[in-house]
Design a protein around this nucleic acid. Structure first.
Lengths: 343, 343
DNA sequence: GACTGGCACTCATCGTGGCTGAGTGCCAGG
DNA sequence: CCTGGCACTCAGCCACGATGAGTGCCAGTC
């Protein structure tokens, strides 16, 4: 039960070595690479205790030790410090993300960058509509009975929908509708705006009500619908590298990563329990998705200022460089947040 | 040299059986499954000739035969007919794609559908900006010195950019700019519109020229830039299934599939040599991308009417069901084209 | 009491050798 | 030109033993 300092030191060394070499680590290798100032035999005794407590295990007799999920957990919680990125790395992030021209580009660059820096699979959720507010609504006539509704949010996101009008409607009338919806909904958070849509119909001239009703129903759908919570993915090629061991699992992991819903559950930061602002780490089966039980997930929320409009993170083998990955995820999320603020 | 009918028949049978069983096919298995009315020995003689000509090969002595790329090529060109989809399949396509609410959704659904129907990796290029024309331009003030430019094309695509104005500009002036650009560029193909941007500056009141100049430069960039040729991908999990043989290659294939540029080269239908309207099939190393030499690509262009605004297709092992895949790709492309026409 | 050297033990890995069966190539005969 | 028969090749499988990495335990030392 009592894990003295040296035993913790041993666990830490095991995790670090295993992550680096991808091979079970032996007592001798440990004392050689880390200066523990004790003999292999002593380390073996410590290992026996650690194994008893469930922090490490042997793949088979006469093999070295490998950390268990529980071991990684202890390592992440108490044995490692997040190592801040070097100045050079920070600059690289800024340079790469700074060149983005629009929101899609920001997301695309972010996900590529994350995948490259962590050498794992990166996942980025597009800024959620529901967290942001309406900047502007635009109505574009397509024909006399159809128009295109464009919703622009303050995170720079744009949604468009076709509206079928009940009858021919003049340009002036459309201008009137346009003014009305903008004055009523402009600047409002989407959730609030959705509530106001209902009242729009009663506030226009009777003749315009049928048209406004059609518009309102499409508008409501656009504001409320969560389907548009899109996800960007990159770095799946890294799976083929890292997961050399569980060949069988690869298929399942790829499948899980293709399901938007699954990914949203994974990195969509809807939770309020991460008030710390630090990335959240889920190791192996701490994760809810069965297909990803052989992986770990490091994720965090991002957004302008203190608000959170989306999530991002990486998925990799449980055997990953946690301190490095956490640092990278955190840094990237912060920088994306800044980008969204200034835009 | 002379490949009589039966030899072709044998090749056809070999391809079909190999695709179905994923195992080298033997002379005996052939005569059992197809009623060739000859003995295995005869088939063996034919096989020897086919091998000499390079259409099939033996993985090793005392194994059955496997088609070579050249064999697949002959099969695709002369031995197979594209089998039309069943009515039920057609309806399934319509039902699934018909539910799309906007352009992003069309692309997303298409790529998922293709992956599912062919059980391979599906690739869909977003409708290219450069092939379509301007439906409407919208200017949305953000502050007195910034506005958001929104370009809406007739394929339903929307691009937005931030424009920094040289100085504070009144709302009326912005309306004027808006009217000007729309009357000048509305309805024009993007390529043509780009040419007209230059002249815009001279056609507004002198006071507005600096503002129009800023707007024009961003507009030009938006119209010309090809960066926005985006790609959607789905079904990578199918790779893990199909490529059981070349485990090593998987990594490379995944990497290639992550490079937008590579994918564009692959399925971007800029070529004019496919006037036939039929899907194009590239088998193994007929393909330019080295990482994909162990795969085949079936691709085609799509668009409203006869015009082509993008490409779509699938990537799979050379050992694939060509007739079925070609039929599916063709049918999906046609239906997407129809969707774009009516929208 | 904590650490260490030594030793016996376990077991994955690797190479060898023999066996089996699938599938072919070839030849002689119809 | 086709067919039955036969010899030949070779991947796949299994059993076997040798090797060596790594451990667990114990008796001895500081």
């Amino acid at each position: 039960m009592g894990l003295d300092d040296r035993k913790l030191e041993v666990l830490k060394a095991i995790v670090e070595d295993y992550v680096a070499t991808e091979e079970p680590v032996s007592s001798r290798a440990l004392v050689e690479r880390h200066n523990l100032n004790v003999s292999p035999a002593t380390v073996r005794n410590d290992m026996a205790v650690l194994e008893e407590e469930g922090y490490i295990r042997q793949p088979h007799t006469s093999a070295g030790r490998v950390p268990t999920n529980r071991g990684y957990r202890l390592f992440v919680d108490r044995l490692s410090r997040i190592k801040p990125l070097s100045q050079a790395e920070r600059r690289a992030i800024e340079r790469f993300l700074g060149g983005a021209v629009d929101l899609d580009d920001v997301v695309y660059r972010t996900v590529r960058l994350l995948a490259q820096l962590t050498r794992q699979v990166a996942v980025v959720q597009y800024p959620s509509l529901t967290r942001s507010s309406v900047r502007h609504l635009e109505l574009v006539p397509i024909s006399t009975t159809r128009l295109m509704l464009v919703v622009i949010t303050d995170t720079g996101r744009v949604e468009q929908r076709i509206v079928e009008l009940p009858g021919p409607t003049a340009g002036d009338d459309i201008l009137e509708l346009r003014g009305k919806v903008n004055s009523k909904l402009g600047g409002k958070p989407l959730t609030e705006a959705a509530g106001l849509v209902q009242s729009l119909v009663d506030e226009v001239a009777p003749l315009l009500r049928p048209a406004m009703a059609s518009l309102a129903s499409v508008l409501l759908e656009t504001l409320v619908e969560r389907r548009d919570e899109r996800i960007a993915l990159a770095g799946t090629a890294n799976l083929a590298r890292g997961m050399g061991d569980f060949k069988g699992t690869l298929r399942g992991v790829l499948e899980a990563l293709e399901e938007q819903v699954v990914l949203l559950k994974l990195i969509g930061h809807v939770d309020s329990d991460d008030i710390t602002g630090e990335p959240r780490v889920r190791i192996g089966d701490e994760n809810e998705i069965a297909d990803l039980h052989s992986t770990s997930v490091v994720s965090t929320g991002y957004g302008p200022g203190r608000t959170i409009v989306g999530g991002l993170g990486v998925v990799g083998p449980t055997r990953m460089d946690y301190p490095g990955t956490i640092a990278t995820v955190r840094a990237v999320a912060r920088y994306v947040g800044e980008l969204l603020t200034h835009n």
